[in-house]
Design a protein around this nucleic acid. Sequence first.
DNA 1: ATGGTAGAAACTCTA
Length: 256
Amino acid sequence: MKLATWNVNSLRVRLPHLLDWLAANAPDVVCLQETKCEDGNFPSRELEAAGYSGIHHGQRGYNGVAILSRAGGMGVSRGIPAFADEQSRVIAADFDGVRVVSVYVPNGQSVGSDKYAYKLRWFEALAQWLASELAVHPKLAVLGDFNVAPEDRDVHDPLLWEGKIHVSAAERDALRRVVAVGLADAFRLFEQPEKSFSWWDYRMGAFRRNMGLRIDLVLLSPALAALCRSCRIDPAPRRLERPSDHAPVLCELAIP
DNA sequence: ATGGTAGAAACTCTA
């Protein structure tokens, strides 16, 4: 089973890139973030023509998460159950006995802002919910844009970013509490190239200079981590015309 | 300290 996650930064704008990428990589399940479209505008026909069905938790203009799959998901849930949230940031479903969660963690804007406080509250609710999910679903995979670079090696210039949004101690602690429910960062189960990042600012030629962060993660429960055979970032779509600012992350599990 | 770019939407916000 090939899992993937990609913050597409507008599903409608990125649809050609997405369809090409699906054809080239043939993933079984793909988590998307920042679809930025309402459920009524979800491009179901185009995706079905490519062999994928989608479930979507969208909203007008901002946010929006989806999961694409070959066979369709069972037991779809939207949002974090005990956390009232007007923003569409979580969708989950079962695929072949694997519980897959697509998450778009709040950006947080800047340390100390209202959005930062919301981000930290949101993380706490996520951790609590995932702890209960893991108890029910031993095969749990949480994929998405976490908007936190877990460690300094996930940051192109740790000194420049020290204490800033995506890197601050409170955000890293919040992410650590999510991982601590019993999940592994699949990317770090394997040897990886130095300076591997999944997001590069559109500005100042950041991608060309590899000034990025690794903030798009695949978190696996122990049962799935034991089956994980590879995890890598694919920077190819970031080189295209009109790219998303994020690259997709691919993860292979030894599940037929 | 600021500004740089992109997307959605609608003359501004979010990232």
